[in-house]
Computed example of a mutant assay.
Amino acid sequence: MLKGAIDYAPSTFEERGAAVAFTTPLLSQTRVRRGERTKLEVLIPALSEGMGTYVVPWKAVPEMVPMTMHDRYLHDLIVKEEACSPQEIRRATLKAARRGLAGPQAAQAARRALEEDEEQSTLTHYLLLLSILKAVGLESPEMLKAGIGTEEGQRLTRQLMARAADSLKLEANLLYARLAEVAAAVAPVGLAQSPKPGRLLRGMQELKGFRDSMTQWANEVPNDAAPVAAFCADVAQHTIGIGDAILADFQRRVDAIGPLMRDWETDFAVIRTHARRMAWLLDGWTHVTGAWEVALAEDRQQQALTINELFRILPLLPKKESRVDMLGAAKRVKSVHRRSVRMLEDWRTGEMDVDAIRRIELVKARTA
């Protein structure tokens, strides 16, 4: 089924699908979603340098496009796990990259990302525990001095959490369980008071840097790609505005952790929804900001080509998530958009562009 790449505008994040970090250039950042009868399908934009988006059954992709070994493994993982949310796709992507199929640097980056996820989870759990104690007036210098990882620190923590549960009129086991659920939902985003920002907070910071860099490039470089760069900056700014609003309410609710633990059914559902929405909002942007970071070290011509490539995969917001019509602006920019003279892949012969694959693997090594 073929739909126009510009005319087609999804209504929801789920309809837009989650971006997949394939290394095959033609498939790079294509999106997977659930179609009819909940079957997975992939959206491939601008196939054969055309103006359309092909919607293809997921299982048929290897028959349609020559794929790298990494991409075949990743494709199989997604089929087996029926993954289609940003978090599920990311887990599958890191699992594939960790095997070294996208190169040693990408494998190292994937292992590092998994380690950072674990560290962030532990840190978030610890900081939330301290917040609970502070909320009920039970801050303990002795516990902090002993360290929560020590036997003495754990003993003090159990005592204090039991007292906190009494203060909140909850069973201690229930308080621990709720704390674990909040930590799991919050860790990918991160806490404002954390010494290290969470993955999605970092993503917002990187997106703001991308917006500023695109704006500067559009203003300073006399090139046909300048209007495209300005459009990329506008889309980034629009995404940032929505993300900042979500994060403000998210952080306010997490900070009020005492009331959260008491009014659990209502407040935690909102926090979890905010966290999921942030993951969808930033889905696909990591590759975009990473590719631009790589291009910044290159000449203006290559930067212009990169901007044109990024326009093809730019994560436009679904209609129900935005009051601003970016689709009309995209149509206007399309008239001045110039494709990169380096073909992403000769789709007619199936010949791979090795240089393009290496560039994608370099981005993966920086953005796992």
Score class of each variant (00 low, 15 high):
Ala225Pro: 00
Thr150Met: 06
Asn219Val: 08
Leu200His: 01
Leu179Tyr: 04
Leu130Ile: 07
Leu130Gly: 08
Arg163Ile: 09
Leu160Ser: 11
Ile89Leu: 02
Glu116Tyr: 04
Ala184Ile: 11
Leu156Arg: 11
Gly149Tyr: 05
Met204Tyr: 03
Glu171Lys: 14
Leu175Lys: 02
Val189Ser: 02
Asp212Val: 12
Tyr126His: 15
Gln120Val: 01
Ala109Cys: 07
Ala184Thr: 15
Lys145Tyr: 14
Ala135Arg: 07
Val189His: 03
Ser121Ile: 01
Asp166Pro: 05
Ala233Lys: 05
Lys208Tyr: 03
Ala172Arg: 14
Leu129Arg: 15
Arg91Ser: 11
Gly103Trp: 01
Ser140Tyr: 02
Asn223Arg: 11
Val221Ser: 12
Arg98Tyr: 09
Lys145Ser: 15
Glu88His: 09
Leu144Ser: 12
Leu168Ala: 10
Lys95Trp: 06
Leu101Lys: 11
Ala113Ile: 06
Gly137His: 10
Gly203Ile: 04
Arg199Thr: 12
Ala185Pro: 04
Glu220Ser: 15
Glu142Tyr: 10
Ser131Gly: 13
Phe210Cys: 06
Arg163Phe: 02
Glu142Asp: 15
Leu179Ala: 07
Ile148Tyr: 08
Ala110Glu: 01
Asp212Gly: 09
Pro188Glu: 09
Lys196Asn: 08
Pro104Glu: 13
Val136Glu: 01
Ala218Arg: 02
Lys145Ala: 15
Arg199Tyr: 10
Ala185Lys: 04
Ala230Asn: 10
Ala109Trp: 01
Asn223Glu: 11
Arg91Thr: 10
Arg202Asp: 08
Arg155Met: 09
Ile148Leu: 14
Glu116Gln: 13
Ala110Asn: 05
Glu171Ala: 14
Asp166Thr: 12
Gln193Trp: 05
Arg99Thr: 11
Thr215Cys: 07
Leu101Asn: 11
Lys145Leu: 15
Asn173Glu: 15
Ser213Ala: 14
Glu206Val: 02
Pro188Val: 09
Ala225Gln: 09
Ala110Pro: 07
Ser121Phe: 07
Pro188Leu: 05
Met161Val: 15
Gly203Trp: 01
Leu128Gly: 07
Ser213Leu: 00
Leu101Ile: 09
Pro227Trp: 03
Pro222Phe: 04
Arg99Leu: 08
Gly190Arg: 02
Tyr176Ser: 14
Glu151Asp: 12
Leu179Pro: 08
Glu88Leu: 04
Gly147Leu: 02
Val182Lys: 01
Thr122Glu: 12
Ala102Tyr: 00
Ser140Asn: 13
Ala109Phe: 00
Lys169Thr: 15
Arg202Ile: 04
Val186Glu: 03
Leu200Asp: 00
Asn223Cys: 09
Phe231Glu: 05
Trp217Glu: 03
Pro141Asp: 13
Leu170Gly: 07
Asn223Thr: 14
Ala172Tyr: 05
Ala183Thr: 05
Val189Cys: 06
